[in-house]
Amino acid sequence: ALDVMPILTIDLGTDLVPALALGSEPPEPGIMDKPPRNLNEHVITRSLLLRSYLWLGPIQSLAVLSAFFYQYWTNGYWGRFFDLPAEGPLYHSAVGMALAAVVTTQIGNVLAHRTERSSIFKVGFFTNKMVWAGIASELIIILIVLYVPLFQEIIGTAPFPVENWLFLFAWAPVLLLAEELRKGVIRMIEQRKEVIHHQEG
Score class of each variant (00 low, 15 high):
Thr45Val: 06
Leu54Phe: 14
Val43Thr: 10
Leu39Pro: 11
Arg51Ala: 12
Ser47Ile: 10
Pro29His: 01
Leu39Asp: 12
Met32Arg: 14
Phe82Leu: 15
Ser66Leu: 13
Leu84Arg: 01
Asp33Val: 04
Ser47Glu: 15
Tyr70Asp: 00
Gly57Phe: 03
Leu62Thr: 14
Ser66Asp: 06
Phe81Val: 05
Thr45Leu: 06
Phe68Pro: 04
His42Ser: 11
Val43Ala: 10
Leu49Tyr: 09
Ala67Ser: 10
Gly30Thr: 10
Pro36Ala: 08
His42Tyr: 01
Trp55Thr: 10
Pro35Cys: 06
Ser61Cys: 12
Ile44Ala: 09
Leu50Glu: 11
Pro58Asp: 05
Gln60Tyr: 04
Leu84Thr: 05
Pro85Met: 09
Leu56Tyr: 06
Leu48Glu: 08
Leu84Lys: 01
Ile31Gln: 09
Trp78His: 03
Trp55Asn: 08
Leu49Ala: 15
Thr74Gly: 10
Tyr72Val: 07
Leu50Thr: 07
Leu65Val: 09
Tyr77Thr: 08
Ile31Tyr: 11
Lys34Ala: 13
Val64Asp: 05
Leu39Cys: 05
Ile59Asn: 08
Gly79Ile: 01
Pro85Val: 10
Phe82Val: 14
Ala67Gln: 02
Ser66Asn: 04
Glu41Ala: 11
Asn75Gly: 06
Gly76Ile: 00
Leu39Arg: 11
Leu62Lys: 08
Ser61Arg: 11
Ala67Asp: 02
Tyr53Thr: 03
Thr45Gly: 02
Tyr70Phe: 15
Arg51Gly: 14
Ala63Trp: 13
Arg46Gly: 12
Met32Leu: 15
Leu62Asp: 03
Leu49Gln: 09
Gly57Arg: 03
Glu87Gly: 02
Ser61Ala: 15
Ser47Cys: 05
Gly76Gln: 00
Pro36Asn: 08
Tyr70Ser: 02
Pro58Lys: 04
Leu39Ser: 13
Pro29Thr: 04
Asp33Lys: 15
Gly30Ala: 09
Asn75Phe: 01
Leu48Cys: 02
Thr74His: 13
Tyr53Asp: 02
His42Asn: 04
Arg80Thr: 01
Arg37Tyr: 05
Leu54Trp: 07
Ile59Leu: 15
Phe69Trp: 14
Ser52Val: 07
Gln71Trp: 06
Asn40Ala: 14
Leu49His: 06
Phe82Gln: 11
Trp78Arg: 03
Arg46Leu: 12
His42Leu: 04
Ile44Tyr: 06
Pro29Ser: 06
Arg51Ser: 14
Ser61Gln: 14
Ile59Ser: 12
Lys34Val: 05
Pro29Gln: 03
Trp55Asp: 02
Leu49Ser: 14
Gly30Glu: 08
Asp33Arg: 14
Trp78Asp: 00
Phe82Gly: 03
Tyr77His: 15
Phe82Asn: 12
Leu48Arg: 09
Arg46Asp: 10
Ala67Leu: 02
Gly30Arg: 11
Tyr72Asp: 08
Val43Met: 10
Phe69Val: 04
Leu48Asp: 15
Asp33Gly: 10
Ser66Trp: 12
Leu50Gly: 15
Pro58Ile: 04
Thr45Trp: 04
Gly30Ser: 08
Tyr77Arg: 09
Arg46Pro: 00
Trp55Tyr: 13
Asn38Gln: 12
Gly57Asn: 03
Leu84Trp: 02
Leu84Glu: 07
Arg80Cys: 00
Glu87Ser: 15
Leu84Gln: 03
His42Ile: 01
Asn38Pro: 01
Leu62His: 10
Phe69Gly: 06
Ala67Met: 03
Thr45Asp: 08
Arg51Thr: 14
Gly30Cys: 10
Val64Cys: 05
